[in-house]
Design a protein around this nucleic acid. Structure first.
Lengths: 256, 256
DNA sequence: CAGTGGTCTAGACCACGTG
DNA sequence: ACGTGGTCTAGACCACTGC
């Protein structure tokens, strides 16, 4: 099996001629790794095979695998740990959590948090939610409403929409029993890994209902955050509309 | 000059023994490149020397220089252009602008923007601003206030603080004549490149003065953004407190 | 055509974590 | 001692840009 440069690479397309749609080898490897992640071949928190193993599997050099993994690590899908291996990112870790929870106390002191489920129902998707989730109109979705409290003070009111086909069996009871971040639950119970999210933020006056639930005055200024979260392959898997009380908290962001 | 692995590397410290503070070669190269950028050896918009030239200058392989540049490019300090070279990032480009201007129209249609300078004075730094800019208390700062309008509608009210020692000669008149983003002006007139910024966001009710300037009702909800901007080496160079009208605009953000 | 960054390889050695 | 990822090198070839 002594190689020549044009050895067969199995699933990989031939690249010897300047093909019309040129894609670097490491990008193709990255795609294959993404497929494996999506397929659940390696679960969140687990180690993926070593670089040498992957290089052998794909019939490329270690350096090429390395570059593919580098990009996935830069996107926070994988986490490299020197001496130990490369691991699938998981929301069962404080670090990942803070990537998605941007509201932090003004004084920086850590707070105790609690969640109260208001509501969890299966309904037909409203048109706007269906569009954002790329579902057919009126397809089934799960609608979840909750209040998050920090140091006993109600601070976040969330209105969450999930594709019904994927999240069947999600009930208010199962949620009430669960402690920890929602996205961690989604991983372990439904095999859905949230990988990226887009947010649109506005300042809005509190509606009477919001004011009541968050124990603020009607009309007081709230931070409104509309989030669409994506799994592997940029598939939208959650729409989340939240309003935040920013009296003693702020939304932090870094511009790079 | 045929090399042996332990050839002298000029300015670079000897790494042959397992040194106490181990730092990879490419990190040291990155540091040297950063110094050159900070010193202004290569100006924003200009090309830096080719990878091979830099490799020769620093007496390392092209691959090592490449990795240093890769990191600087990932941090948006440098921009690689295949076939042309590697360039110093500049705010004289639409792309860079949108990294720092996160307010966008809800309907996505582009808007005409205009700036009105309210005020530009040299004053003694308030304690909080001095702390954020890492200045001694009561040191001189420039305080600049302006209103940005989108499609003729006043939308952003900014209160900006700059270190007086660096921004001497910045006046309301020079600003009034200038068209374009502030950060581009800072680059060409004062040699200050903004590279990164941290923001803290809240929802607040409009004060009577803010309401008047932004033509909204007193007490209506505004998005409040406190930004600290940094140059090379994470040196704070601007404090900017803005309030945004988010009636027809939103602050967009991506969580990765 | 020459020069730039981009890809790919192969191999040596280092630092880290675990037995 | 071993296996992992991390660094560094040298060299070949590819793709893009501009003269």
């Amino acid at each position: 099996m002594s190689d020549t440069p044009s050895t067969d690479r199995g699933a990989l397309p031939d690249r010897s001629a300047g093909s019309a749609a040129f894609s670097p080898l490491y990008q193709q490897i990255k795609g294959l790794l993404l497929q494996s992640l999506d397929r659940g071949e390696w679960k969140p928190g687990e180690a993926i095979p070593s670089e040498l193993e992957l290089a052998a599997r794909f019939q490329v050099s270690q350096g090429t695998v390395r570059k593919a993994i580098d990009e996935l690590a830069a996107e926070n899908l994988l986490i490299r740990r020197q001496g130990k291996g490369t691991f699938v990112a998981t929301h069962h870790e404080a670090k990942v959590r803070f990537r998605f929870l941007r509201l932090t106390p003004d004084d920086g002191k850590p707070v105790a948090s609690g969640s109260r489920i208001l509501d969890c129902r299966r309904v037909k998707a409203p048109a706007d939610v269906a569009a954002l989730l790329e579902l057919r109109s009126a397809e089934a979705v799960v609608n979840l409403r909750r209040v998050l409290s920090f140091d006993q003070a109600p601070t976040i009111l969330d209105d969450i929409w999930l594709p019904g086909a994927v999240f069947r069996g999600l009930t208010a009871e199962s949620l009430a029993r669960y402690r920890g971040p929602l996205y961690a639950l989604f991983e372990t119970e439904f095999g859905v890994s949230m990988v990226r999210a887009d947010e649109k933020i506005k300042a809005v006056p509190a509606s009477p209902e919001q004011a009541e639930l968050l124990q603020v005055e009607t009309g007081s200024a709230l931070l409104q955050v509309e989030r669409v979260s994506f799994t592997y392959g940029d598939r939208p898997m959650e729409v989340r509309r939240g309003v935040y009380v920013t009296e003693r908290f702020h939304y932090r962001n870094s511009l790079n």
